[in-house]
Nucleic acid binder design. Sequence first.
DNA 1: CTGAAAGCGCTTACAG
DNA 2: CTGAAAGCGCTTACAG
Lengths: 366, 366
Amino acid sequence: MAIERQRRRSSQSVTIRDVAAHVGVSPMTVSRVINRESNVKPETRELVHAAIRALNYAPSPAARSLAGSIPCRIGLLYDNPSTGYLSELLLGALDESSRTGAQVLVERCGESEMAAAALGKLLKAGIDGLILTPPLCESDRVLAEVQHAGVVAIAVAPGYASERLATIRIDNEAAARDLTEYLLSLGHRRFGCIKGHPNHTGSQQRADGFLSALAAAGIAPDTVRMEQGYYTYRSGLQAAQRLLADEPYPTAIFAANDDMAAAAVSLAHRMGFEVPQDLSIAGFDDTPIAASVWPALTTIHQPVAAMARAAVDLVLEEVHRQREGTGAPRQLLHPHTLIVRESTGPAPLPDDGGSHAGAIAPGDRL
Amino acid sequence: MAIERQRRRSSQSVTIRDVAAHVGVSPMTVSRVINRESNVKPETRELVHAAIRALNYAPSPAARSLAGSIPCRIGLLYDNPSTGYLSELLLGALDESSRTGAQVLVERCGESEMAAAALGKLLKAGIDGLILTPPLCESDRVLAEVQHAGVVAIAVAPGYASERLATIRIDNEAAARDLTEYLLSLGHRRFGCIKGHPNHTGSQQRADGFLSALAAAGIAPDTVRMEQGYYTYRSGLQAAQRLLADEPYPTAIFAANDDMAAAAVSLAHRMGFEVPQDLSIAGFDDTPIAASVWPALTTIHQPVAAMARAAVDLVLEEVHRQREGTGAPRQLLHPHTLIVRESTGPAPLPDDGGSHAGAIAPGDRL
DNA sequence: CTGAAAGCGCTTACAG
DNA sequence: CTGAAAGCGCTTACAG
């Protein structure tokens, strides 16, 4: 009887071998499914996926990177002012990357001139693919750099579909239209708009959706005041100030994101407007700030975490696709949702127009 | 002549084997040197070190974590931080984990009853260690669950050092004192305070630091109005409303975090106070909201990203330490910084006391 | 104090 | 479409 040496404890509970045994195939087949290789019988693939879920299996990044040149490092390059947006993005990306065994390297690049440096850092770390957020994914310069470096990139939340890049986005124009139609249904006829940053293509779409809904309702464009914002709280404050500079005041303001809408609420309060009694204000994106300010913002929910999860899958898929040289970049559209909260209400009666001077009294309930 | 199969390309240029060959020892000896084990002849150790330098060798994190018990999966359990705090935390943890080759699994648990579920999910994923944020790291119940599961845990940003857990924190009391002394130096004598959530131990320390600085300046405690907050924007609004309910108004408000301070600014504006001319308001943490609102908040910078990076290292270290059964949990203290921005200013002159009714005029610059 | 063997979990490079 | 063999770079668990 042979003396067996003590088996070393395995650091991982469930491995590719367990999944294989569960299905009754070889580990190789499981490996192929994980790596999205095409030469696996669809039924087998399904069985393997089911086993992966059942056993709650997650591939070991260490083993993958040691064994092969499997793409498992994903760069995430961002340049975004809203922190609520960022944490959702990170959470979603992290979640999916741990599920797929990929590793996400996050890098910020403030200016478009910094993109080269940030990109260089990611390349040096050996990324296999890149997730880009606006406005980076819409900058020809950044895109050229990415292409020159030979990295596969995809875009999250750009305005448009693209022939060069795989994209994941919502229909910004339809969403803005939905929100605007809701404001119209409340009886509003005098509108103001705080536009998003001009270098995000989604900004134009949001403005277009807003204007097209107004046009469909017979609101003359010249009665609509459009002010430029840049997606920051500060820019929202300034745009709102211009919007409320003189009469007739709008009864409803559509801001192209939540940060600017929150700023508009704050400024309106400071000027003595009651929200939503004197003035309705709506945002866009449904980032955490929308639910936390008072009154909470009516807005469009953009499923950022789900989109980030999808982005991790998509970039892996895209790396594979480009290696095979087949097909075209995928274009994914996620659903948006209108979220009605307290910052919007019925349009004030015409004779209420001038009564916005009342600051709240100490005893008011919040 | 045997037909040899093509050698697979190696992903690494110089390995432990090359170093061993260069010195004339076995790879094991090199491994021992790398891992700082004591049982290597000093001369051999020196030779190995020389070879490592000569060949510019760097160990492969993937191979180390695969082969050994080098822990590589870290759970991060969080409850309900402000989103600015969360994104900093994630960014820092991600950054360090990619550097060390560890993988971070993030899980949210809303209620303390949910901790078991979230923890179970992380355990099932095979985590080696756990990073806990307040108030989870201060809940006996959660701690008991963690201990029962046999996971090594550390705490980020708890109030106190601990005998059971390794911790990383700032000196909340000293930080609150620093901030309060700054407010005193501006001439303020009538104070209000919005306290943090009672189930965070740091909240008490912040209040203590505030009160002790006031006491040192001879301010009678009964002239100081303390209101309970819960770290949310909403709770800050309500506490500020109570604080400003009747005269004499405080000339300075210290809020235990930035979200509550931002809410206090918003409420003050709505009531017609000018900030900081009529009322100074300071926050704590220096999360992104502090710099984005107007006026930007004077606050204490808590280096959350650096603390999160340190947490990843610390949990790995702690896993190692507990396996060896040596020493005591490490207690790390990070430095805080007072950040002076526009939300605080000189105390108003006594005769200015009642002139807080002016809402801003449309032409004011922001 | 040192080393030969086995194996971590996965992949590549084959062969069917 | 599927699998057996070999190996990625390192460590553990032995035996000297």
